[in-house]
Simulated assay, not measured.
Amino acid sequence: MECKEIESTLLEALSLEEVHVSQEGTHYKIIAVGDCFDGMNRVKQQQMIYGPLMAHITSGELHAITINAFTVTQWKREKVFNMPS
């Protein structure tokens, strides 16, 4: 699955400000930014991301996924540490 396809799937399904997806081999890293994560614990945040991707995960198309979810305020603070240089 292409990174841009994952990004567009998540942007269509969730109220996100930004989505960044990178890939190394079969491992995908997803950074999702949106105020929809406000007040949620990490498990709930990840469940929100997994939801729209579940068909691709169960088919084996997506295998290893790392998810980092941030509110817009958190992202302003954390962006410098999470974006590739």
Results as ranks from 00 to 15, higher is better:
C36L: 14
K76H: 13
A55I: 08
Q46R: 03
N41Q: 05
L62M: 06
V80M: 10
V72M: 01
S59R: 08
F37Y: 02
K79T: 02
L53W: 07
A69Y: 07
M40V: 14
A69M: 06
Q45R: 13
A55L: 00
Y50T: 11
V43L: 15
H56E: 11
Q45E: 05
K79C: 06
I49D: 04
F37D: 04
M40P: 02
Q47W: 09
N68R: 13
R42S: 10
H63R: 13
F81K: 15
N68G: 05
Q46Y: 04
A64M: 07
A64F: 09
M40F: 12
H63W: 07
A64S: 13
V33K: 04
D35V: 14
F81W: 12
S59M: 07
H63T: 09
R42P: 07
R77I: 15
A32S: 09
S59F: 03
Q74L: 13
L53C: 01
Q46C: 08
E61Y: 12
H56M: 12
T66Q: 13
M54H: 10
I65D: 01
S59G: 01
I31E: 07
L62K: 03
P52V: 09
P52W: 01
D35Y: 04
I49W: 00
A64N: 10
M40Q: 02
H63F: 02
Q74K: 10
S59N: 09
A64D: 11
T71E: 05
T66D: 02
I57N: 08
G34C: 09
T58W: 09
W75H: 05
T66P: 05
H63G: 08
L62F: 04
R42F: 11
V72I: 15
R42Q: 15
L62G: 03
Y50D: 07
I49N: 02
R42E: 10
M54V: 12
I49C: 03
I65R: 06
T66L: 14
K44M: 13
W75A: 05
Q46L: 05
R77W: 15
T73P: 02
V33I: 14
I49Y: 03
W75K: 00
F81N: 15
V72L: 04
M54G: 06
Q74E: 14
I67G: 02
T66Y: 08
K44N: 10
A32C: 03
Q47T: 05
T73M: 11
A69C: 06
K76Y: 13
K79R: 04
R42C: 10
F70I: 06
